[in-house]
C-alpha cells in the first residue's frame, strides 16, 4: 500500500547543525519515523522548542514549528493546544531547557495532563553554552562551571518528577536505540494525555562521562524484565534505580501509562463549543451582557 506521506515529506530543506555523532540526530530520526508511521499531516503538527542545541529540531522538519525562548516551550505549546486542540502538539528541547530554567512549567503541564508529547534530549550537560553543569549532571561531574569539587547538587530525576506530577505516559529512550525510541515516541503521540519521553542523548563534545558506551554498558529494557507499566508503585521503584539507587543499570522503555485520567482539554468548559480557533468572533448577546451593569 502506498502511503500518502513519504519519510522525506517530513524533512525540511534545512540540515541539522549538530556536532557529528550528536545523540540528537537519533531523536530527530525517531520523531520523523514516528510521525511517518502515524502518517500525520505535516500541517496539523506543531513542534515547539525552547533554546539549546536540541531546540533547533523544529527547523529540520516540514511541520509547523515555534522556536521559543529558553525554558518556555511548554507554555507556548499549551497555548497552541488550547487555542486549537485538533493540532498534534509536540515539544522538543534539552535538559537545561526543560528540567532547569523551565522546570516549573514542566511540573504544571504534567499536572494538567494536557495532551502534549514532550521529548527531552537529555545529555546531562549544557552544550550550546559550551559545557556547564546541567540539572541532570551526575553528582561529582566536573564541568566548566564546577571545576573544583564537581557538581555538588543532586540531579533532577525527570522520571520520578513526572510520575509525581501527574504525567500519564512516562518513558525513557536512548539515542543508541532509534527503533526503541521511535516506538516510545509513536505511542506517546497517540497517548491521550501528557507524555514525557526522556531521551538519553549523549553530547559527544562536552560530556565525556555519559557517553554512548556508558549507556550501552548499563541499559536494559523494562518490558523484557516484566515491568508492568500500569503499576504506578512499580514505576516509582524503577524510576529511582538510576541515578539514585545505583549506577550500574539504567532502565529504558515505558515506566508508566494510564488512559484513565481525563485531559485538561476534556475538562475545560470553553472547549465544549469546539476548538476556539474555529469559533466566530464577537458576541451576539450584547444586551444580556450589559444588563448586568444596569
Amino acid at each position: 500500500m502506498k502511503l500518502e506521506f513519504e519519510m522525506d515529506t517530513y524533512k525540511s530543506e534545512i540540515k541539522p547543525t549538530w556536532c557529528p555523532g550528536c545523540g540528537d540526530f537519533a531523536v530527530l530520526r525517531a520523531l520523523q519515523t514516528a510521525i511517518h508511521a502515524l502518517q500525520l499531516e505535516p500541517w496539523n503538527v506543531v513542534i515547539v522548542s525552547g533554546i539549546g542545541c536540541s531546540s533547533n529540531l523544529p527547523h529540520f522538519l516540514s511541520t509547523y514549528g515555534f522556536h521559543a525562548i529558553h525554558g518556555r516551550a511548554l507554555p507556548v505549546a499549551e497555548g497552541v493546544k488550547l487555542a486549537n486542540p485538533e493540532l498534534q502538539v509536540i515539544v522538543t528541547g534539552g535538559d537545561g531547557d526543560g528540567y532547569g530554567i523551565g522546570v516549573g512549567h514542566f511540573i504544571h503541564a504534567m499536572r494538567r495532563n494536557i495532551d502534549i508529547t514532550y521529548l527531552v534530549m537529555n545529555n546531562q550537560i549544557y552544550g550550546l553554552t559550551t559545557g556547564q553543569a546541567s540539572p541532570t549532571s551526575e553528582k561529582g561531574m566536573k564541568t566548566k562551571s564546577t571545576p573544583i569539587a564537581g557538581v555538588i547538587e543532586n540531579p533532577v530525576d525527570p522520571i520520578s518528577l513526572a510520575l509525581a506530577s501527574g504525567a500519564t505516559y512516562v518513558a525513557r529512550g536512548f539515542s543508541g536505540d532509534v527503533k526503541g525510541m521511535s516506538e516510545l515516541v509513536k505511542n506517546g503521540i497517540t497517548h491521550h494525555g501528557f507524555s514525557l519521553i526522556d531521551c538519553m542523548s549523549p553530547c559527544v563534545t562536552y560530556n565525556k562521562v555519559n557517553t554512548y558506551d556508558f549507556f550501552r554498558e548499563r541499559v536494559y529494557d523494562l518490558a523484557k524484565e516484566g515491568h508492568d507499566p500500569s503499576d504506578m508503585k512499580a514505576a516509582f521503584a524503577k524510576a529511582i534505580e538510576w541515578p539514585f539507587v545505583q549506577r550500574d543499570r539504567i532502565p529504558l522503555g515505558l515506566f508508566y501509562r494510564t488512559e484513565d485520567v481525563p485531559t485538561y482539554e476534556d475538562l475545560e468548559p470553553a472547549l465544549k463549543k469546539g476548538p476556539p480557533v474555529h469559533q466566530p468572533l464577537g458576541v451576539t448577546d450584547a444586551d444580556a451582557l450589559l444588563d448586568e451593569f444596569l
Partner: peptide, 30 residues
C-alpha cells in the same frame, strides 16, 4: 467560557505571556 474563551489561571506570568504567544500563533485572539 460561554463565549468560547479559554480562561486559564497559570503558574506564573512567564507562563501567562508564553501561553498567550502560543495561542496567538495558533490563530486565536489572545
Amino acid at each position: 467560557p460561554a463565549h468560547g474563551v479559554v480562561v486559564k489561571q497559570v503558574e506564573d506570568e512567564l507562563a501567562a505571556m508564553n501561553m498567550t504567544v502560543g495561542a496567538g500563533f495558533a490563530g486565536v485572539r489572545a
